[in-house]
């Protein structure tokens, strides 16, 4: 593409009504907040005119500047200055796409859903290997085919809700991968709980893993399991904050998934409590009770204090 060609197209005024509302085939915007742009246009006007494309018999399509057009429409503007690519300009779709890509990359960072949109659109015109080696690094992604396939799948198969979670960075990639193997209704149910309880990244993975396991073990669909567990936040202890509620919910699910492990943990906790350890002395079990060694932690100020604490320990009944 000749890099100077677009700037050679003269500016002209186009009625906003003539421009289609659909994002169109070159769009790579998802999950954006329009307010700052509206505010900017209100204050200083449109700085950078959009690039549009006119095809006979169709509404004018947006090549670059989808958000600007949307902002102008919401401000009830009548027309916009723009560069209009006419049929006789003979600009192929790939060039339009690349124009918009570079326009975006020079002004902002794309979120992961938008990267998926770019890769998906490119895959219609560019060989897969070229996308991997040239365009994935351009988007800040590792150049590998597995990654490309995942982005393409996300763009094609994920619903808006999960894409919104991804674009807002509220869902870890591993959680996204786990959710991608699950049907839409189940996914929506899981996302609702993740969202309501604001589960952190590790909690998300644990939660999805437990629920999927329970669904397989109990041979019931995920929505049924979720409804049976009654995880609605309104039904949780109102005297606790959200992180506490999240922890309580995960514990409840874990008890159902791993009853023996939870029973052993409770038994150990009770045993430690019954020791009546002095303040500042802790005993912890090896992770999952798999190793053979328990850990003793003693807080002390100086050597004499340590000696006293050890003496206290030796006097504790029930350690043997």
């Amino acid at each position: 593409m000749n890099p100077y060609r677009v700037s050679e197209i003269p500016l002209q005024e186009v009625a906003l009504d003539d421009i289609g509302d659909a994002p169109g085939p070159f769009c790579m915007s998802f999950g954006f907040d329009l307010e700052p742009l509206i505010s900017s246009i209100k204050t200083v006007g449109l700085i950078n005119p959009p690039i549009l494309r006119s095809d006979p018999g169709q509404k004018i399509a947006v090549v670059a500047g989808y958000r600007r057009i949307k902002a102008l429409k919401s401000l009830n503007a009548v027309s916009t200055p723009c560069r209009l690519i006419e049929r006789h300009d003979d600009m192929p779709p790939l060039e339009c796409l690349l124009l918009n890509l570079h326009d975006n990359l020079s002004t902002r960072r794309l979120n992961d859903v938008e990267k998926g949109m770019v890769l998906s659109r490119l895959s219609a015109f560019v060989p897969r290997q070229e996308i991997v080696t040239q365009y994935m690094p351009l988007l800040g992604l590792s150049p590998n085919e597995k990654g490309l396939l995942f982005f393409l799948e996300m763009e094609t198969h994920f619903d808006v809700k999960i894409k919104t979670f991804v674009s807002e960075g509220r869902l870890s990639w591993r959680a996204v991968k786990m959710l991608s193997d699950i049907d839409a209704a189940s996914r929506a149910g899981l996302l609702r709980v993740i969202s309501e309880l604001m589960l952190n990244i590790n909690q998300q993975l644990q939660f999805i893993d437990y629920i999927v396991d329970l669904s397989f073990i109990e041979k019931n669909p995920i929505p049924w399991i979720l409804s049976e567990l009654d995880l609605d936040r309104n039904h949780l202890d109102k005297n606790t904050n959200r992180p506490q509620q999240a922890k309580a919910v995960l514990n409840r699910i874990k008890t159902r998934r791993n009853p023996s492990i939870v029973k052993a943990e409770k038994k150990f906790s009770r045993a430690v409590i019954n020791l009546n350890l002095p303040d500042g002395i802790l005993i912890s079990a090896p992770p999952f009770f798999e190793g053979e060694h328990y850990r003793l932690e003693i807080l002390f100020r100086e050597g004499e204090d340590l000696k006293n604490r050890l003496q206290e320990l030796l006097r504790i009944q029930g350690l043997d």
């Binding site: 396991d213 397989f216 073990i217 998934r257 791993n258 009853p259 023996s260 492990i261 052993a264 992770p287 999952f288 009770f289 798999e290 190793g291």
Partner: peptide, 19 residues
């Protein structure tokens, strides 16, 4: 995969020790 698994000392998933 239905059993109760833990992460073993070698990083592999294995059944909870009493099992």
């Amino acid at each position: 995969l239905n059993g109760e698994f833990i992460i073993g000392l070698d990083g592999k998933m294995r059944y909870f020790k009493p099992i």
